[in-house]
């Protein structure tokens, strides 16, 4: 990360803040040289560096976990929820129809025989694992009732052994599945 603070910027005059900027990698080389020269004989500045490191480390350790998979699964909730009365096997076909209806046939294109609209694993997708898992779940057939799918969307974040099994042979995922996910993230149907 390159320092972006201009040399003539009006900064609050605070040793702890300077120390934090130093350990955060936000000082220009000239500033860092000057600050390190100060550290040669300025005990309060040295103590500030120690405090800044301690605080930064504690904050870093408390970083929120990466976006849990359950949240990404939830991107599909609006797709699944209206289908509560159906079996999941039928949901696959109806989903495509539903998407067509919602999109007016413009943004989201359903797969067709000539142009299946599939993408390879990880290809151009923000959440390829989740896209693939959702697709695998939808393909799983009648044993997956829509209520099961809804429960699955709310499951804890960890990828389960069942998920792993689904993912062991990465499926080709129709492009509309991840388009749906991306639109959902943007708040679009």
């Amino acid at each position: 990360m390159s320092p972006e603070i201009p040399d003539d910027a009006q900064l609050p005059d605070d040793l702890d803040l300077a120390a934090f900027r130093y350990v955060a990698g936000e000082m220009s080389p000239d500033e860092a040289i000057a600050f390190e020269a100060r550290l040669a004989d300025d005990q309060p500045a040295r103590e500030s560096v120690g405090r800044a490191v301690a605080l930064a480390e504690r904050l870093a350790e408390a970083a929120p976990a990466e976006e849990p998979i359950v949240e990404r699964r939830a991107d599909y909730r609006w797709v699944i929820a209206p289908l509560g009365w159906m079996a999941a096997g039928a949901a696959v076909a109806l989903l495509a129809v539903s998407l067509l209806g919602r999109s007016g046939g413009s943004a989201i294109q359903p797969p067709d025989a000539g142009n299946p609209g599939t993408v390879g694993p990880g290809e151009g997708r923000a959440n390829p694992d989740v896209d693939a898992l959702v697709w695998a779940r939808l393909q799983a057939g009648p044993q997956w009732a829509a209520a099961d799918l809804e429960r699955w969307l709310d499951e804890p974040a960890e990828v389960t052994a069942e998920d792993e099994a689904d993912w062991s042979d990465p499926p080709e995922v129709p492009a509309w599945i991840f388009t749906t996910s991306q639109n959902s993230k943007r708040g679009q149907p």
């Binding site: 990360m1 390159s2 320092p3 130093y22 350990v23 955060a24 990698g25 000082m27 080389p29 860092a32 800044a52 490191v53 930064a56 480390e57 904050l59 870093a60 350790e61």
Partner: peptide, 11 residues
Amino acid sequence: LWARPVWQARP
């Protein structure tokens, strides 16, 4: 080195 945030040195 100066541009490296200290917290990248994870415990």
